[in-house]
Simulated scan of single mutants.
Amino acid sequence: MKNLLKEVTYKTIKTFKAQDIVLPGDYSQQFSLHAKECDLDLEEEDIVLKSLFQDKDELMNITNETSSNLSSLHQTTSNAKLAIENKNASALLIVHNEIVAMQKKIESLQEQLCTDTLTKAKNRKWFLDYYLLNEKFIDDGYLVFIDLNNFKYVNDTYGHIMGDMVLKYLSTYLQDEIKGHNTSLVRYAGDEFMIVFNNHLPKDRLINFLDKIQEKLAKRKLKSKITDTLQFSYSYGIASFVKEDTFTDVLEIADARMYENKQKMKNKEYLEKFN
């Protein structure tokens, strides 16, 4: 449900991207239309509200953990001060161990805050913090925008549990394939992902690499209790950027090229079917 809400929200925002003014009634109408397309039942008010507050609960847990760590840090600091004053080596060792344990907890919380719960890819917050400053890129590189093909069909035919399995499978597959390229997979929204590559790799070699992993996935079958014959694929678009380029402008180019790639794949499937 939460993933569907994110997908509907993203599609609704995208509809009004070029408009300076959006009236509440227009937004509500478009949101309802996209909800219907994604089979999201807005009448299930309790479920919708529960999904909306899941992220909030997760953030509250992280906030509480952080608060607890700060209290522990205050106590540890006091203990360290006493140990130094009393020249107590064993007490200082205990303090050191407490600080190391606390550091590991903080690192774990930071990882949770920047990781998508379902797919274990990095989330949009991580992307914004890592690559952008004031919505502009801080370095040169390539943005790859990825979108699953026929994802609505998967949800409609096999159910949303299978849809989640597909998202997790795709995420694991892509993360394995890009290992060694000094980058991370980012879940942007719904069934859309992003990868940023630095510009050290020539663009033609990068496209060749992306084409190969795209074709490799399309030949695989996802096996589960629901079906052992599901094949799925994705389309991608790539856009180069330089330092100070605005993220939304670069994303728009990558998005347009992704749709070109999607059409190219449809044409290829059609030709293979009738040849």
Rank of each mutant, 00 (worst) to 15 (best):
D116V: 10
V48A: 05
N86H: 13
I161K: 12
K14A: 10
Y234D: 02
Y131C: 08
L230Q: 01
I13G: 01
Q231T: 11
K216V: 05
I161P: 02
K223A: 07
R187P: 00
K212S: 12
L49Q: 10
T157M: 08
K120I: 08
S72H: 05
K87Y: 08
N88V: 00
Y153L: 09
I99Q: 03
E107T: 07
I106E: 01
Y270L: 14
E192V: 08
K50Q: 07
K268W: 06
M102L: 13
N149R: 08
V100H: 04
Y236P: 00
V196H: 00
Y158W: 13
K212I: 03
I13N: 03
E260T: 13
N79G: 01
K50S: 14
L201N: 07
H96A: 10
H96P: 01
H34E: 14
A189M: 07
L185I: 10
K262G: 04
S233W: 10
H200K: 15
Y130V: 08
I84L: 14
S28Q: 15
G25M: 06
R205P: 01
I207R: 07
E85K: 13
H74D: 09
L251N: 10
S72M: 14
L174M: 15
I106N: 00
K87T: 09
I146F: 14
K125W: 07
S67G: 05
S51H: 13
I238C: 04
L271H: 09
A256S: 11
Y142H: 12
K36I: 07
K36P: 00
F247N: 02
Y259F: 15
K221Y: 12
D176P: 01
K104G: 00
S90V: 04
F247Y: 15
L42M: 15
K179W: 11
S51N: 12
T9A: 13
E252Q: 15
R220Q: 15
G159A: 10
K17R: 14
L222H: 05
A35K: 01
R205T: 04
H181D: 04
K36S: 06
W126Y: 15
T246L: 14
S51R: 03
D156N: 13
K104A: 13
T172W: 05
F241K: 03
N79E: 13
T9R: 11
E43T: 15
Y158V: 03
I99C: 05
D46S: 15
S235M: 07
I99V: 15
Y270D: 13
F247T: 05
D245A: 10
S32D: 09
V186M: 06
P24V: 11
F151A: 05
V95T: 09
T117F: 09
L167Q: 08
D245Q: 02
T117I: 12
E45C: 09
N199Y: 09
L217V: 04
K105Q: 12
S108D: 10
N86D: 09
L230M: 06
E107I: 02
L201F: 11
N69R: 10
I178G: 05
A83P: 02
N79F: 08
E215T: 11
N199M: 05
D116E: 07
M165G: 11
T66C: 04
V144Q: 04
L167S: 03
L217P: 01
S171G: 07
A80I: 03
T119I: 02
V22Q: 06
E252F: 13
